[in-house]
Design a binder for these strands. Structure first.
Lengths: 343, 343
DNA sequence: CTGTTAGCGCCTTCAT
DNA sequence: ATGAAGGCGCTAACAG
């Protein structure tokens, strides 16, 4: 195939080769009935011209773009790549494209706001993974009337569907695992207040502790912004607490990384001197020694469900179905970082 | 702001409020000169109407979309998220949107080919991270005449710019580090043949060995498809070799994960019984015990450069500048996984 | 500086 | 089943 800088072929070119009207050609490409002979003529012409429909010309006419925006938060972890890829994979099978933006608050105020870019490109909907500070951007999307689906958590007041882990359940299961192994002095690393997901995991942690009659000391709950360094510092504080917890639950990927690093740097042996259940870090769990026990989100399923809900909203824009709040179960992946305590 | 499902405002609406012609309004939005009074009138009307330019109507007219496609390979690692986000961040400041697709060969043959989706949406260019099997898709993009920039490696025969790590140098530096620590029996884990980047790292490994007068046994070079399980198996083979290497270089993220897991599962102590230099796994390096020494790619810089080159090509489409092949240096991040051998 | 006009590629009546 | 005509929102001539 020779390189050609010529502008792409259009219906007119096909018309020239086939003698058919533009309407007929359009019908062919939209799956309506066309005489077999004409169909063949069009296909032959299209092949020769290397024709490809112009999706946005069609968008202009139809008023929909078959494109959805994906808004990533200002911080990233490996979870987010799987989300994007999962969404894209699902939507592509429905002929929908994915425009990604990240809500990085870079220094450049000149830079176009991420959501504005999406709206200007007339995306049919937005799937957002909100950071604490991103919720207002999603609100403007809601306000112009396009469907919004959030992943991971739903900022309060946002009129949108959401798909997330069943966070309370996750916190419970992880904590119960610690309790089942005989631990009674428990610590937790969780995010700042406001983020639903982390709060839910903490709620589950507390509920499991309460149900087991375990009391949690105030300084055994460490809140930190979601990043590795804060997780590290928070874990260090836990390890230095007056009475050190025998087991810790880290409520998120970044906090888990920081926590493991803190344990190692303290010269403590994971799963021996201190027990730990991490979060979301399947790959990390493989390389720690001993392997980490982690609660794993069903990332692919979350992505797929978010895409499915979005697709359903787009298929039926007038639907008045009330918003979905889907909470999916994850699972505990057992490693050897939780020691059995025998009293 | 009240939710409105009404269709978005257009120039016509602004015209109705201001009495100005469409041309003047267009000029305003394209930064041409407009009387101050008219400018204010337009701004007032736009604010009232919550007007946002329709990017693809403009595209239709101008023949460019200010959108570039990013094509991800059929396998993913955390590296790729940073690439996408880095590219998006740069391009957004230039008003360019990013349409992502992954070249997943899912079972659904009905699903639209990733590159076809991009071309149908008339992206102005494509930045691709090719997997071994994805290069033909990029070739069709090249054949229709839009600029293509590859990241990580350039499939042979593809007429495109590329940005990558200086792989040979990386392999040399990592290997020299092992040699400097007294190791003379070296092993390497690298990818299948064909991928430039992995081959370059191996070349660097071999060059450093040769320069130091170190000979490498055939079975100390293990080739594996790029994924954790194969990396694990390959490392196991190295550890079981007739004469076991004292130090190993893992040439990629996934292979590194597999290698560390294999070491741990073998009951060997990292940095003691076996030395290891990993690749790209900054986060992993923090949680292994001891911390892993890794060669780190300048991911953000790679992403930015790829975006910058793409943007330059778009700014000057007629440029006949020959293709750029940019190779950037990374750096070795020292941990404690390489033991000093004293003979 | 502003307005008029035509048309980008496609889809949708409405005839035929 | 096909064709003719108009228009989606915007921009590029050109004229004033």
């Amino acid at each position: 195939m020779s390189k050609s800088t010529r502008s792409p072929a259009t219906y007119k070119d096909i018309q020239r080769l086939t003698g058919l009207s533009l309407a007929t050609i359009s019908k062919y490409y939209n799956g309506r009935n066309v005489l077999a002979s004409n169909r063949e003529a069009i296909e032959a012409a299209a092949a020769e011209l290397n024709y490809r429909p112009n999706a946005f010309a069609s968008s202009l006419r139809r008023g929909v773009t078959r494109t959805v925006g994906v808004l990533l938060p200002s911080f990233q972890n490996p979870f987010h790549l799987e989300i994007v890829v999962g969404i894209e994979k699902y939507l592509r099978t429905h002929g929908i494209g994915v425009l990604v933006t990240s809500n990085e608050q870079d220094g450049t105020p000149s830079s176009v706001n991420a959501v504005e870019l999406l709206l200007s490109r007339r995306v049919d909907g937005i799937i957002g993974v909100p950071a604490l500070s991103d919720s207002s951007a999603l609100a403007t999307a809601v306000s112009i009337g396009i469907p919004v689906v959030t992943v991971d958590w739903l900022p309060s007041g946002l009129d949108a569907d959401s798909v997330s882990l069943d966070n309370v359940q996750a916190g419970k299961v992880a904590t119960q695992h610690l309790i089942d192994h005989g631990h009674r002095t428990l610590g937790a690393l969780v995010g700042e207040e406001g983020m639903w997901s982390l709060q839910g995991r903490l709620d589950g942690f507390l509920a499991a502790a309460r149900a087991a009659g375990v009391t949690i000391a105030d300084d055994h709950i460490q809140r930190a912004p979601i990043n590795v360094d804060y997780g590290y510092a928070a874990m260090m504080r836990l390890l230095a607490a007056e009475t050190r917890p025998t087991a810790v639950f880290a409520g998120n990927y970044d906090l888990t990384v920081g926590a493991v690093a803190a344990v190692n740097d303290s010269g403590l042996r994971l799963g021996h001197d201190i027990s730990l259940v991490g979060f979301d870090s399947v790959e990390l769990a493989k390389v720690t020694s001993p392997k980490l026990t982690v609660y794993v989100q069903p990332v692919e399923q979350i992505a797929t469900e978010a895409a499915r809900i979005m697709n359903a909203r787009l298929d039926d824009p007038d639907s008045t179905t009330s918003h979905v709040m889907l909470e999916l179960p994850g699972h505990l992946q057992i490693g050897a970082s939780v020691r059995r305590l025998t009293d």
